[in-house]
Design a protein around this nucleic acid. Structure first.
Length: 227
DNA sequence: AAGGGTCTCAACCGCCATAAC
DNA sequence: CGTTATGGCGGTTGAGACCCT
């Protein structure tokens, strides 16, 4: 019992595709389409491959509308934004990025963006050990996602910060202060932070700026964190 | 130059949803 | 309505490229 395999695994080729195989698959699909049956396609196309493998090769690599090459900052922003909202639904995220496949987006996230995110978190967490004369920059947990930042001014012991936006969106920080009445910072987006030559430097700037009133933009949504 | 570690990304695996029978 | 076949998806793997010492 149990599910039958989609192909005879002992008699199909596996591993990297050769240029000849690519040409055969491309030629067949361009002339006949997939025929709505990937399982039957390899035999018709003269390929010793599993149908699933053919489908994957076509969708992820051979399709004419595939965009190869580096991701742009706009694409990064889109991935951050969507990931913060829907998580690892790569096919949905990829559908918003013309020419990108879910596999592309997933690989890009796992190898690049996730690392940047982790490094940024670590850098922000490190600021817990900041000198007491400086405002304390710390990461707080967001129910939607991480990478929200709060700032505790040194001139008050109890404070409440409102954090507006999420990854990929404009990120505003607003901290009530005694004088001036509030402090508001806008870092553009988390992606901007990642793109800076060194986000430690950016955070350093945050610290320096935190003693002054900075007001940029209107928050589109507001989430309040207490600490 | 060698070799060990790390990174990248194409490809595979296995599960789930759905269509077809 | 149950079973089977297939498509689609996210997670994972591993070969080769690249980097560092």
């Amino acid at each position: 019992m149990g599910r039958a395999p989609c192909c005879d695994k002992a008699n199909v080729k596996r591993g990297p595709w050769s240029p000849e195989e690519d040409a055969a698959l491309r030629s067949y699909i361009q002339n006949h389409g997939s025929g709505g049956n990937w399982i039957a396609l390899p035999k018709k196309a003269g390929l010793k491959r599993c149908g699933k493998s053919c489908r994957l090769r076509w969708l992820n690599y051979l399709r004419p509308d595939i965009k190869h090459g580096c991701f742009t900052k706009e694409e990064d922003d889109m991935i951050f934004t969507l990931y913060s909202k829907i998580g690892s639904r790569w096919s949905v995220i990829a559908s918003k990025l013309p020419g990108r496949t879910d596999n592309d987006v997933k690989n890009y996230w796992n190898t690049k963006l996730k690392k940047r995110m982790m490094e940024a978190q670590a850098a922000l967490s490190d600021n817990h050990s900041a000198p007491s004369s400086q405002p304390l920059v710390q990461r707080v947990h967001s129910s939607a996602f991480i990478n929200c930042v709060s700032i505790r001014p040194t001139d008050q012991t109890e404070s409440q910060s409102s954090i507006n936006g999420s990854l990929g969106e404009s990120l505003d920080l607003r901290v009530p202060r005694q004088n001036p009445n509030y402090l508001e910072l806008d870092f553009g987006s988390i992606a901007d932070l990642f793109y800076s030559s060194s986000y430690e430097e950016t955070i350093g700037t945050m610290w320096a700026d935190a003693s002054e009133e900075i007001k940029l933009g209107e928050p589109s949504q507001s989430v309040t964190y207490l600490y």
